[in-house]
Amino acid sequence: MRVEIWTDINCPWCYIGKARFEQALAAFPHRAEVEVVHRSFELDPNGPRDARPVIPLLATKYGMSLEQAEAAEARIAENAHGEGLPYLAGRRDAANSFDMHRLLHFALEHGRQSELLDVLYRANFAEERSAFGADRLLELAVEAGLDGGAAGAVLADPEAYAEAVREDEATASAMGATGVPFFVLDRRLGVSGAQPAETFTRALEQAWESRVPTPLIQVGAAGDAAGDAEACGPDGCELPQR
């Protein structure tokens, strides 16, 4: 069974959702027969390439004060900490993520995609230093176990793996995905947002037990009993309620 996960490094709910999904997957009896592939989804394809502090960006996007943006970021940090994830609230940057996605496709070819994704998430949400910029991305690629020369060549060529990124985004659009994280099991069952681990457990069990060609069913979509879960979309990331 294949699980495809559409994400963006700028999305805190993708960071949290990955941890919740992996918790469910670790306890799944057929874990060894599940292939996980991470797909590209840019929250802001036209975003600036230079990294900018996230708090002013949140304030502008949501029309709130800097203090309110700081409080919202702190609540997301609480959710991350609840999953055992490090998170430096308010001390991260945001920028165009296209190069990150290109590198993730390169890493997939070399069997290091999950490792690179973990390194990128940690750098973006848990470290003081920005995760953006070609030099920094090269360092992170090497840290994930990739060859520095080959990774540098990918970063130097703006068309390297660019089509693969665009194909992922087109597929997500065709499936009706408007935000991330978005999990698709065998192209038949969809799970939207950073759902609780129990929801991912049910989705894995349902997909495994019904492995016949059927239309895509969304778990966690509007009107579904599972309810909506936090996600990030082109207009921003949902903020946890008090």
Rank of each mutant, 00 (worst) to 15 (best):
E198Q: 15
P240F: 09
D135G: 12
C237M: 08
A164G: 03
L43W: 05
G63C: 02
A231I: 01
A225V: 14
G145C: 09
M64R: 14
P12E: 08
T201N: 01
P196S: 11
A59E: 12
G233N: 12
M64S: 13
R2N: 15
A89F: 07
L185Q: 05
G227T: 10
A221M: 08
D135W: 02
A172W: 08
R122H: 14
L116N: 00
G220C: 01
Q113P: 05
W6V: 02
A59L: 10
L43Q: 00
E139L: 13
T60Y: 11
A153H: 06
N96K: 04
F132D: 07
Y121T: 00
S40I: 05
R187L: 03
E143I: 00
C237F: 11
P213S: 04
A229I: 07
C237H: 06
A74S: 13
M100I: 14
G133E: 07
L155Y: 02
L57R: 14
R211G: 04
A126G: 11
V36C: 09
T214H: 12
P213H: 10
A89Q: 02
A172F: 00
D118A: 15
I5P: 03
M100T: 11
L185V: 12
I9V: 15
P53E: 07
L146D: 00
G133C: 11
A207N: 06
G148F: 04
R112P: 06
A134I: 11
L66N: 10
L239C: 12
D99S: 10
Q113M: 02
F183P: 03
D135T: 10
A77S: 12
L104W: 04
G149Q: 12
A19Y: 03
W13M: 00
T199A: 15
P181G: 14
V119F: 01
G176W: 10
W208G: 06
L117W: 00
M175V: 04
T171P: 11
A150G: 12
A26W: 08
P29E: 02
F21M: 02
L117V: 14
P86S: 01
R188K: 11
E35A: 11
D228K: 15
R75C: 03
R20F: 07
D50S: 15
A194L: 07
D224G: 11
V154L: 09
A222N: 15
A231W: 03
V184G: 01
A221F: 10
A174G: 13
E205I: 14
F200P: 00
L57V: 15
R92V: 01
R91G: 09
A77Q: 02
F106L: 07
L189Q: 00
A123N: 09
Y87L: 00
A231F: 09
E67L: 11
F182H: 05
F200I: 05
A156P: 01
A27R: 15
F28K: 06
A131W: 02
D168K: 07
P181I: 08
E67R: 13
I16M: 10
S192I: 14
Q241W: 14
A123C: 05
P53R: 09
G236Q: 02
E67A: 14
D99G: 04
